[in-house]
Amino acid sequence: MLPADSDLVPALLRGEEAAFASILDAWSGGLQRVARSYVRTNEIADEVVQDTWRAVIAGLPRFEGRSSLKTWIFTIAANRARTRAKREARAVPMSAVGGGGPDGGLDPDRLRGGGGWLVTDAPEGIDSPEAETIAWEASGVVEEALAAVPERQRTVLLLRDVEGLSSEDVCNLLEISHSNQRVLLHRGRAKLRSALATTCRRCRTRRSSHEPHQPADAVVRGGGRAIVGLARR
């Protein structure tokens, strides 16, 4: 658990190495995930993270505290990743991510009929009549499923639900409107849920065919409720 910005920022400005080490260790993984949602390879994402930290070191004395330190750093990373992705000629048009609204983002009206619970594709997956609560406990499963979520939706999902940034911060960081942010988050969650259904189905299949060899693949816990997890690979 990191100290509050009111302690952390002065410590960093005083040059306390332990403070810098603590944010380096706490946020590099999240920065890598966010960068990776823009760029093509893990290696490029790693470079973006490294560049981000360099920019943080250089910019710290000018940090004004208008956002939280974390948001400031993630904004630097997102901007750098975006620039890098453009340079790699990989900029994905918004239209490829699920439809374009008038401002190049998503039109909230598109939610109607398509962005609900996704009940229509439920029967194939996790909420069959005998539905059990499925907890996606091992992060390996969630990370695998996240890859199936379109880029923009995934970025919002990572910033909001994984990194815990506020919706206002995410809007500023990604330069999108509040309604776009909400739509991207909603669609991202719906997509992730459906991807998790597929992943869990696959891991159940894998479990049944490899049961004697991979008992750790799934854990079934009390009350007849199955909690399906997948060992991190």
Partner: peptide, 20 residues
């Protein structure tokens, strides 16, 4: 399921992720 998913995502964040 959504709630459980949101919790798993938060845990993913708390776990930190790939180390430098």
């Amino acid at each position: 399921q959504y709630r459980s998913m949101k919790q798993s995502l938060a845990e993913l964040g708390e776990g930190g992720g790939a180390a430098l």
